[in-house]
Amino acid sequence: MKQNDAVKNKHLKVKTKRLNRSKAGDVGIDIMLILLAAFMVLPMVYVIGNSFKSFDELFVFPPRFIPLNPTTANYLDLFTVLSTSWVPISRYLFNTVFVTVVGGIAHIFISSLAAYALCKFNFPGKNVMFQTVVLSLMFSATVTQIPSFLIIAKLGILDTPWSLILPAIQSSLGLYLMKQFMEQLIHDSLLEAARIDGAGEIRIFGQIVMPLVKPAWLTLMILTIQSLWNSTGAGYIFSEEIKMLPTALSQITATGIARAGVSAAITVIMMLVPILTFVFSQSQMIETMATSGMKD
């Protein structure tokens, strides 16, 4: 059915492409897009360039975008610094990966369960629950940081990875997107049929609902990666051996100008993970976002 739609759209697009489109307008839009894209991309090109510059070239005047003599010295340096540090870097890397993976998987599983309940069951209280979630989309974590800190301290999970994982699991954006996606994708008839066949609710969820919403899993994973991969844990985590990768890396950067190239290398490495995950899941993410609309 989906394929049919795609074919139909393609067919229509060929016809409609010419409607109301002037050549000059097309060119104008291309130019605007190129200018804006340059604004977006140049800073990143610059930092990537810097990470491959030798020490002398970092400080030439005028500064260059692209290194003349690219070198991997900064990356090699980074690994030397890291392998000789007090707590080995693999530890920090493990901490960040642990928090991101556990947080991401738990977020997907727990919010899918709740999303499924919210969109396919009719129980008292569900409207209030969903409206609260929608309202909370507006309240960024920065605003609730003080009371959140008090609560996390009271729960006794301060200075443990859970102080980062548990709040990430209940991200309201994830639940919202998952619920909207399920609403569109999972038809009641399918669930009815499964129930008639004698499938239990847990089995229906695990074997019918979850496989169908795979694109939304990826979206939720990306969103979790965005918040947790770059999370420094500042304010919540103090012990050296459970510190996050960005904190450890910023300690290296803090040693000043001698490490300018190395810190560029760090930035590039930290950027790679979220960007690569997006590259591989872009179409699924767009598919999820298509249902993200908010109706009154």
Partner: peptide, 17 residues
């Protein structure tokens, strides 16, 4: 189904407010 999420949601989002 909704409980695990909403318990966390209450503790880390509603309660702080």
């Amino acid at each position: 189904f909704a409980a695990p999420y909403f318990i966390l949601f209450f503790v880390f989002t509603v309660l702080p407010v």
